[in-house]
Design a protein around this nucleic acid. Structure first.
Lengths: 350, 350
DNA sequence: AGCGCAAATGGTAGCGCTATCATGGCGTAA
DNA sequence: TTACGCCATGATAGCGCTACCATTTGCGCT
C-alpha cells in the first residue's frame, strides 16, 4: 500500500520517528546515538528502547553530510597476495562503513603505476591514503604523498620511520617465537628462506630467526639460509637447495606462506613427508596456508583488525590536519599469533 | 591560513562553486554531472571545463541524501576462495562508490551462519543482497531472502532459476572450450576432476567436458573421472588416483584452480613433469593459478566485472521494488576466456 | 507578427542528521 | 533569599545535492 511519500523512497525510520516515539527532540536522540554525555540515563534508556523497537539505523549519508566528515580516502595497493588483500578489504570496509567515509580502491601496478595513481589521487582531492603491505615500504610512494601533503597510514610497515603513522606487528618477535617453537619441537638444524631483499620486514624476520637460534646456542650455517622473493616458485627452488643434499635440515622456516607452500611441494617431490621427515612453517597465515596440504603452521597477523585500525588512525590524522591541530604520528603494534597446523611436528627419533 | 569556514571541514569545491564559475545555476551543473539531456551542448562544455578546472568531484553523501537512493546493500559470503572474494570486492566496491550505496559485508559461515546473517539483514533494514559464488547456489538462502521479500542477485549461479536475477558465465561452454583446446593439443585421454557435488556449476562443467570429448569421438572412461570437492587436498588425492597407475591420462582437467594446484603437487610427487609429461588445467583463474609453479592454464571469469554488474542489477531491482514497477529477472551471461599458461602443452611424441 | 510548444534554465524546498546557541531547571555558595 | 553556574534538552539552521515545479528562451508554424 506504499503510502505516498513525496520523494521518499520507502518508509525509512529516521531520527525524528524515534524522537516522536519517545517524546523527546531529535537532538536528544542524536546525542544518544552518538554516545554523548549530558543525557540523563533514564532518557538514554528510553531512546535506546525505541531505537530497538523501531529498528532504527542511522543514515550514514546524512550524518556525513552534516558532520562534514566526508573524508575521501583511497586504498592504494600493488599486487599483494589476494588473500591478504581480501582480508584487508574486509577490515577496512567495515571501518569505512562505520565512519561513513568515501573509500576508493586504487591499484598501482608497474613502475609508473604509482606515479599515475598518485596523480589521480591528487586530482580527485583525496584526503588520505591507506597503504597495505608491500606498498607501505615504498619510499617513493611515501615521498610522493608527503610532497602532496596527503596524510597516509602504512600497514605492516617494517621500516621504522618515526614521522609516519603505521600499524604493524613485530616481525622480529614473531619470527623469534616461531623459531623458538621449532626448537622446542626438537629441531636443531633449521633452514631459513628469506623474503624479498627490498622488504625491510624480511630483514626483521630473518633477524628474529637468527636471534632465537643464537639464544638456544644453535649455529646457523650459511648453507641453511637461502634467498627467496616471497613467491611460490622461489620457495620451491629454495627448498630444493635446502633439502636436495645429504645433510638436510629437519625444519624449514619460510618468510611467508607462498614460499612455504612451494617448499612443501618440493619436499613432496623429493619424496619427503611433511611433517614427519621435514617440518615446514610459513608466515602471514594467508589463505594459501590452509589451501595446501598439509595445512601450514604459520604466524598470523590480525590483518582485518590492522586495516580497520589504519583507517581509523588515518581519519584522525585527516581531522587533525583540517582543524590545524598538531598531529603526532603513531606506531601501533598489534599482536601476532602462532597458528599450529599440520605442516610442523616434533623431530622424529629416527 | 585555513580560512574560517563555519562548520565546513575544508575548502571543498561544491556544485555552487562550479555554478558561479560558469555563470549558471547549480541545477544546470547538476544536470551536466548526471548526464541528463536538455542541456545545451555549449553549456555542457563550459560546465565540464569548470569542473575540470576547479577539480570538482561530487559529494556522494549529499547526493545519496538528496536522491534517497541510499540503498543498504549487503554482500553475503561464505568461505569462497579468498582470491575470488578479493576480486569480487574490487568490482563491487567500485560500483558501490559510483552508485553511492551503503555496502555491508557479511560473512555467514557454519550451518546456522546463514540464518543468523539473514536475521541480521532483516533487522538492519537491508534493501538488497548480492550473493557471490558458492552462496548463490544455496536454495536455503534464496528461499529465506524471498520469504523476507528482499531482492537479491546471484553471481555465478549455475542453477537456472528463472525468477532470480543473476550474472554468470556459461560453465558448460567454458568447459567445452577448454576440453576442445586440450584435444587440439593432441591429448586423447583426459582425466577429469569434478567439483563439489552440491554445486550445479560443477555439473555443467562436467557436462561440457563430456560433450567436447564426445564431439571429438573420444571415449571418457569412468576411471578417468574422479570426484573432487573444490579443495586443494581433494585435487591432490584425485590426481593420485588418476596418475598413480600404468595407463595414465596425458592431461587432467580440474574443475577449479585449487584442485588443479593439488594435482600439480601430486604429479611432482610422482616424479612427473608438468606439462611435458602431464598437462594440468584448472578453472576460475583465481590467484592460486599464478601462485603455483608452473602457473596454471585455466578459464578466466571476469569476476570484478560480474560483481559490479550484479550490484548494478540489484540496485535496479531495488528501485523497481520501491517505485512499485514490475520487475523482470535477468539472467546475464558474461564471456569467459581461456588463459594459457605453463601447465599445459602439446602431448609429447614419446 | 503572433501563437504555441518544447527545450533550456532557474528557484525552492527538502533529504536525515548534527553544530551551535538558547532555554529552562536545579543545586550550591554567598 | 538571590545569584551564579552547570546540566539536560530544545529550536534553528544548514551540510551539498537533486526532485519538482516555474519560468524563460528559442523556434517553427500559421
Amino acid at each position: 500500500m506504499a503510502r505516498k511519500v513525496g520523494r521518499r523512497g520507502g518508509n525509512i525510520v529516521t531520527i525524528h520517528d524515534v524522537a516522536r516515539h519517545v517524546g523527546v527532540s531529535p537532538m536528544t536522540v542524536s546525542r544518544v546515538i552518538n554516545g554523548e554525555k549530558n543525557v540523563r540515563e533514564e532518557t538514554r534508556q528510553k531512546v535506546l528502547a525505541s531505537v530497538e523497537a523501531l529498528n532504527y539505523s542511522p543514515n550514514m549519508a546524512a550524518r556525513s553530510l552534516a558532520t562534514q566528515d566526508v573524508a575521501r580516502v583511497a586504498l592504494l595497493y600493488s599486487n599483494p597476495s589476494s588473500a591478504y588483500l581480501s582480508e584487508f578489504l574486509l577490515g577496512i570496509l567495515e571501518q569505512s562503513a562505520q565512519s561513513g567515509c568515501q573509500l576508493t580502491i586504487e591499484s598501482c601496478d608497474g613502475p609508473e603505476g604509482a606515479a599515475s595513481a598518485i596523480e589521480k589521487l591528487k586530482s580527485t582531492g583525496t584526503d588520505g591514503v591507506v597503504l597495505p603491505a608491500p606498498l607501505s615500504d615504498s619510499t617513493r610512494v611515501a615521498k610522493a604523498l608527503k610532497d602532496l601533503n596527503i596524510p597516509f597510514v602504512g600497514v605492516a610497515t617494517a621500516r621504522p620511520s618515526a614521522d609516519v603513522t603505521s600499524v604493524s606487528i613485530d616481525d622480529y618477535k614473531a619470527a623469534y617465537s616461531m623459531t623458538k617453537r621449532l626448537i622446542a619441537l626438537g629441531h636443531r638444524r633449521i633452514g631459513f628462506i628469506k623474503g624479498h631483499p627490498n622488504n625491510y620486514g624480511s630483514q626483521l624476520r630473518y633477524d628474529g630467526f637468527v636471534a632465537a637460534m643464537a639464544k638456544a646456542g644453535l649455529e646457523v650455517d650459511d648453507s641453511d639460509v637461502v634467498q627467496g622473493y616471497f613467491t611460490y616458485r622461489s620457495g620451491f627452488d629454495a627448498a630444493e637447495t635446502l633439502l636436495g643434499r645429504d645433510e638436510r635440515p629437519t625444519a624449514i622456516f619460510a618468510s611467508n606462506d607462498d614460499m612455504a607452500a612451494g617448499a612443501v611441494a618440493t619436499a613432496h617431490r623429493l619424496g619427503l613427508d611433511v611433517p614427519s621427515q621435514v617440518s615446514i612453517v610459513g608466515f602471514d597465515d594467508t589463505a594459501m596456508a590452509t589451501m595446501v596440504w598439509p595445512e601450514l603452521t604459520t604466524v598470523r597477523q590480525p590483518i582485518s583488525d590492522m586495516s580497520a585500525l589504519a583507517l581509523k588512525l588515518l581519519l584522525d590524522q585527516i581531522r587533525a590536519k583540517r582543524t590545524g591541530t598538531p598531529y603526532t604520528p603513531i606506531r601501533e603494534i598489534r599482536d601476532f599469533s602462532l597458528i599450529e597446523r599440520q605442516s610442523s611436528a616434533a623431530v622424529s627419533d629416527a
